[in-house]
Design a protein around this nucleic acid. Structure first.
Lengths: 337, 337
DNA sequence: ATGAAAGCGCTAACAT
DNA sequence: ATGTTAGCGCTTTCAT
C-alpha cells in the first residue's frame, strides 16, 4: 500500500505537504494541491487512520453501547447515531451488553484500547463505574436513555415520568381503577421512572391503595409471567401498563392464553411499540420515545463535547414522549366477569 | 495514559517484555510475568490498539456492511457476527448502505482507511466492484446474503431458490393457480433467485402461463403498490408470494384496504417474517432464513480466512431455509368472487 | 507556502 | 528467557 512518502515522491513534495492536502490544513498553493491530488489518484493512496490516530490523538470513531441492538428501539437509536456520526466523519462501533455489567466492563476496556473519541452509553448497571472509567481514560461520554446515579453526566433521555403519568391518566379516565404496571429492573431509571409516573397518576386520582407494581426484566417473559401472577391475585387488574415493547407482547400473550380479549376484557398500554414498517395494523395505545432523534441528539452532543465546544459536561436533554391512542385500551367493563 | 515504557520501568524490565506478557507470546518466566502484571494493574495500563495495529498490521476489527440494520433480518445477522467476532477478540464496525452503491463505495473507502482485517459484505449493487477494491487493498472479504456476479468469493447465503420453490409448491398444493410474486430489485440475487424458485415450481405444475412477477424494492411500498396493481389486472391472483418481510407487510396492508381477508379471500406467503419476540401471534406462512447462523458462519469463515487457515477463497456456504406453515395461506376459494 | 526532524506506542527482527 | 534497535505511517513542532 502506498504511503504519504510515496505520494510525496511522485508529486515532488515533502510528506507533510501531502498531509496538508489530505487534511485541508495550512496553506497550500493551488498548483501544489493539484500535483498532490494527481499523485494520490495515480497511486490509489488511502490514508492510514491508525497512524493518523496514533500521532494526532484522534481516531474519529465513537462507540454506542446498548443493551441489545435486536430491540427495534435501540436499532432506531443506532441509526440516529450513525447518521449523525457518519456525516461528521465518525465511524461507530456498536456494543451489546445484554444488560450485563460484566459485558459492559469488557467493552469499556476494549473501547479504551481502541482509543475511541467518545462513547454513547446506555448503562447496564445502576452505577457510574463505566462512566468514571471512560472519563479517567480521557474519553468523552454521553449517557443515553437512562440516568446514572451519583454522577453528573451529559444525558439524553425521554420523559419517562411524564409519559407514564399520561398513559396512566388515560386508563383512569377510561374508568380503570385497578391498574398493574409491569416493568424492568429496579435499578434502571427508565424502569423506576415509569413507576413514578404511574404512582403520581394513581395518587392524583386517589387510587394509591390500588397500586400494583411488578419489577422484572425488559423482556417478554417478565410480561408474560407477571401478567399471570397479577390475574391470579386478589386484585385482578382491569388494565395493564407494560413498561416496554417486549413486556407488552408478553402481557398480551398471557391474556390470550387466559381467553381474555384486549381491550374488551382487559386494557393494555405500554412504552415503545414497534416501528410501523413491521406492523400490519398498529394496535397498541403507547407512549413512543423518539429513539432515532435521541440517537441523533446524543451523537451531536457527544461530538460537540469532543470538539471542546461545550464546557459543561452535565447537560441534560429530555425529549418528550408521544402518546398514541389506538385500540388496545378501552372503557372498563362494568359487568363483573 | 501510561505506555509500555512506563510499565517496563515500574516492573524493571524492557518494553518488549511487557509486550510479551500482554500478548502471551514468547517465553516469560512466571516471576517476570507477575512483576509485569502487577505494574500493569498499579498503573492502570491499557494497551493502545492503534500503535499495535500500526506495527503489527492487524487491527482485530471487522466490518459488517448491510443494507439496513433496521431490518430485523439484518439485525439478527449482526448479532451472529458480533457474538462470533467478540469471542475471537474482534470488534465490529457496522455500515448501512440503504441499498445505495454510493454509500457502499464511501464505506469501502473508510474501511480501508481504518485497516479493518476483514469485511462481511451484503453487496448493494449487482457488481463486484467493492469486493475487488477491498481485496486490492489486502482486506479479506466474505460476501453475505447475496451473490456477486463475475467474481468468485467466499459466500454465505441461504437457499433462496429452494425456499421459494417449496413455498410456491405449497400454494399450488392448496389449489392456487394464479400466484403473483412481489420481489426486490432485479439485480440482487436474493430477489431473482426467489423468482427462479417460483418459476421452477410453476413450470413443474404446468402453470408457467400464469406467471406474474413484480420487481421493485425490498420494502413495504413495493408490496403495497404491486399488490394493488396485481389485483387490478386481468389475472387476479388468489395468492401472493412476498420476497421479504417488509414486502409482506405491504401486501397485507393493500389487501386489507381492498377488504380482502387473509387467508379466506387471498393467501399470502413470504420470506423472513419477524422474530417471535415481536409477534403476539405468528401468522405468516414463511420461509425463514437462519440469519443469526448466517452471521456466525460468515464471521467464522472470515476469521479463518484472515488467519490464513483457508487457501481457497471461493468457498460457498448455502444454508437451508426453513418453511414454517402458519395461517396466512389456505385453500383457494372455489366460489368466484 | 513549504519543509526537516522528531516521535506517537507498539512489536518485528535480530541479538544475547 | 530477556533485551536492543529500528520503524510502522502519520502529523506536531519548529524552521525557513
Amino acid at each position: 500500500m502506498p504511503t504519504v512518502l510515496d505520494v510525496a515522491k511522485v508529486a515532488g513534495v515533502a510528506p507533510i505537504t501531502v498531509s496538508r492536502v489530505i487534511n485541508n490544513s495550512g496553506y497550500i498553493s493551488q498548483e501544489t494541491k493539484e500535483k498532490v491530488e494527481a499523485a494520490i489518484i495515480e497511486l490509489g493512496y488511502v490514508p492510514n487512520t491508525l497512524a493518523r490516530g496514533l500521532r494526532s490523538k484522534r481516531t474519529n470513531s465513537l462507540a454506542l453501547v446498548v443493551a441489545d441492538i435486536t430491540n427495534p428501539y435501540f436499532t432506531s437509536m443506532a441509526r440516529g447515531v450513525e447518521d449523525v456520526a457518519g456525516s461528521s466523519g465518525y465511524s461507530v462501533i456498536y456494543c451489546n451488553t445484554d444488560e450485563s455489567e460484566t459485558k459492559e466492563d469488557k467493552y469499556a476496556n476494549i473501547l479504551v484500547q481502541r482509543q475511541v473519541d467518545g462513547v454513547l452509553l446506555v448503562p447496564a448497571g445502576g452505577n457510574a463505574r463505566t462512566v468514571k472509567y471512560l472519563e479517567n481514560n480521557k474519553i468523552d461520554v454521553v449517557v443515553l436513555d437512562r440516568r446514572v446515579p451519583e454522577k453528573n453526566t451529559n444525558l439524553v433521555c425521554s420523559d419517562s415520568v411524564n409519559g407514564a403519568k399520561e398513559l396512566t391518566d388515560l386508563l383512569i379516565k377510561l374508568g380503570h381503577q385497578q391498574i398493574a404496571i409491569i416493568t424492568g429492573p429496579d435499578n434502571v431509571s427508565t424502569s423506576t421512572d415509569r413507576v413514578v409516573g404511574y404512582r403520581n397518576s394513581l395518587e392524583e386520582a386517589g387510587l394509591s391503595a390500588n397500586e400494583q407494581v411488578y419489577f422484572g426484566g425488559f423482556n417478554q417473559q417478565t410480561g408474560y409471567e407477571s401478567t399471570r401472577i397479577a390475574m391470579r391475585s386478589s386484585q385482578k387488574p382491569t388494565a395493564f401498563f407494560a413498561a416496554n415493547n417486549f413486556i407488552l407482547i408478553g402481557v398480551v400473550k398471557a391474556l390470550r392464553e387466559l381467553n381474555l380479549k384486549v381491550p374488551e376484557d382487559v386494557s393494555v398500554v405500554g412504552f415503545d411499540d414497534f416501528p410501523e414498517s413491521m406492523l400490519i395494523e398498529p394496535f397498541f395505545t403507547v407512549a413512543i420515545q423518539p429513539a432515532y432523534e435521541m440517537g441523533q441528539k446524543a451523537a451531536e452532543l457527544l461530538i460537540k463535547q469532543i470538539n471542546g465546544e461545550i464546557v459543561d459536561n452535565s447537560q441534560t436533554i429530555i425529549l418528550p414522549t408521544d402518546i398514541i391512542v389506538r385500540r388496545s385500551a378501552g372503557p372498563v367493563r362494568n359487568n363483573p366477569r
